[in-house]
């Protein structure tokens, strides 16, 4: 069974079409990233999958159930990491995680979750006293305390410093290793590349490309740039066969500053949203 199946999803606000026919399939156990600029329909799509928003058209199955009519049992199987919550400022981290653990039939241990999220030193601190990055880790803790089968991570590392971000990636990998399906929306392409097995790029309410981080948008087939410096100055060559170009170059004698640059995920992404947005 697929964790998420979406066919022809549509949503309009007033006259504005936010989601214009999205198709999406996420297999069980997969880490899937949804990339796209602000206003592309990422959040609307995710919120429909989470059961927070009604759709105007299309078929949606999340863990085999339509989120619009899902019950408590379904909610116990999903975890949601909110993007912008400022609630519960006057509770401590442990009180808040403990409260949410009590809402689930089979929660993780409170201290275990706090430790997983790197908050052990802050367990007794009021949430209002935490830094932005620590606050986000509380959000993550509340999202995973119920031992979800499917976890929604909406821009989870915004405001993290690089070290904390790496720790967070390790946490996501360990959840994935346990078999948790993860739908990640993010602005950070390195994050998608580091975590996602597959990804889709959404622009203007449609999926414009889908694949693995290596192949999405024809990245593996796109021309590479070979550049070098010789007596005649600096050269750049766009080619679909960089190996051959380099071999030919080697036959001609010495060159310096030889570089072969394949398009990065960012190049592909910018091209995709630039063309369609």
């Amino acid at each position: 069974m697929n964790a998420i199946e979406v066919r022809g999803l549509r949503k309009t606000y007033g006259g504005h079409t936010a989601v214009a026919g999205v198709d999406l399939t996420v297999a069980e156990g997969e880490v899937f990233a949804l990339l796209g600029p602000n206003g592309a329909g990422k959040t609307t799509t995710t919120e429909i999958l989470e059961g927070h928003r009604r759709r105007d058209g299309g078929e949606v199955r999340v863990l085999g159930v339509d989120p619009a009519t899902a019950d408590r049992r379904w909610r116990a199987d999903i975890g949601i990491v909110l993007q912008t919550a400022t609630d519960a400022a006057d509770l401590t981290v442990r009180e808040m995680v403990g409260q949410f653990a009590g809402y689930y039939p089979d929660p993780r241990g409170v201290d275990e979750v706090i430790d997983l999220c790197g908050l052990t030193e802050k367990a007794g601190a009021r949430i209002s006293s935490l830094s932005g990055g620590q606050r986000r880790r509380v959000d993550v803790a509340l999202g995973i305390v119920g031992r979800p089968k499917l976890l929604f991570l909406d821009e989870p590392t915004t405001g993290f410093d690089p070290e904390v971000r790496r720790q967070f990636w390790d946490l996501v990998r360990s959840l994935a290793a346990e078999g948790t399906t993860i739908l990640l929306t993010t602005h950070y392409l390195d994050e998608a590349e580091a975590l996602a097995g597959r990804l889709a790029v959404i622009a203007a309410g449609r999926i414009v490309a889908e694949g693995t981080p290596r192949t999405v948008g024809g990245r593996d087939r796109a021309p590479a740039t070979v550049s070098w410096v010789d007596a005649g100055g600096q050269h750049h060559l766009n080619t679909t066969d960089p190996v051959r170009a380099v071999t030919e170059l080697a036959a001609r004698g010495r060159v310096s500053e030889l570089q072969v640059r394949q398009p990065s995920l960012e190049d592909v992404y910018l091209n995709l949203i630039g063309a369609k947005a």
Partner: peptide, 12 residues
Amino acid sequence: DGTLKRLRGTPI
């Protein structure tokens, strides 16, 4: 502040 949205995402 997100309290209700967060609760709605749980089985409560």
